[in-house]
């Protein structure tokens, strides 16, 4: 039997959670002894190549594409872990939820002090995905197994959770690793 596989994705997030994963520094060499990376923005694999033991999801859902990717993660991963506030609550991007989407778009593409837009059009090409009216937390879309809070969760939090799950130990994170900022 081969090594278990881990997949990761960044939906409507800032990649800070992926950066925090990289902050495990040289332990990354140990990690790739324990697992193979499957579909992830940090490697070449675009479609799931097989069943994954663990899926790590950063960011909430702000467009149709995010929803599709999240559903494919649920379908292909045994354990789905939300990493960071954006995935759990929508995070900072969800601050747009109190404002009509149209106003956000107009501010960016029509009203801004440096905007040059003689046609007055907001980007609408079929090549760019449709935005959702609101930014949705991932657990509103699919069932989630574990949550790692923090913005981003510290590297040690991600590391300890992964190692526990991969070695069949209970995930018992010490108090100082549970952060909410």
């Amino acid at each position: 039997m081969g090594k278990p596989k881990v997949a990761t994705t960044s939906l409507c997030g800032c990649f800070g959670c992926h950066m925090s994963l990289l902050d495990i520094d040289d332990r990354i060499l140990k990690l790739i002894e324990l697992v193979d990376f499957d579909k992830s923005p940090i490697d070449d694999i675009k479609e799931f190549s097989g069943r994954c033991a663990i899926g790590l999801v950063e960011g909430g859902c702000c467009n149709e594409e995010n929803v599709k990717v999240l559903q494919s993660f649920r379908k292909n991963c045994d354990i789905l872990i939300l990493v960071g506030e954006c995935a759990m609550t929508g995070g900072i991007p969800a601050m747009r939820n109190t404002i009509p989407l149209k106003e956000c778009l107009e501010e960016a593409y029509i009203n801004g002090p440096t905007v040059h837009n003689p046609s007055g059009k907001i980007p609408n090409d079929p090549e760019i995905p449709l935005l959702l009216n609101k930014v949705y937390p991932c657990q509103d879309v699919v069932k989630i197994d574990y949550y790692l809070p923090g913005c981003p969760p510290p590297a040690d939090t991600i590391w300890q959770a992964l190692v526990a799950l991969l070695t069949d130990e209970p995930v018992e994170l010490p108090y100082e690793l549970i952060k909410y900022d």
């Binding site: 409507c12 702000c62 747009r96 106003e103 778009l105 107009e106 501010e107 980007p123």
Partner: peptide, 15 residues
């Protein structure tokens, strides 16, 4: 063309 397909809306929601 390189299309950037993300939109956040910071300009508006920080108001």
């Amino acid at each position: 063309r390189l299309h950037i397909v993300e939109f956040r809306g910071f300009e508006r929601f920080i108001q």
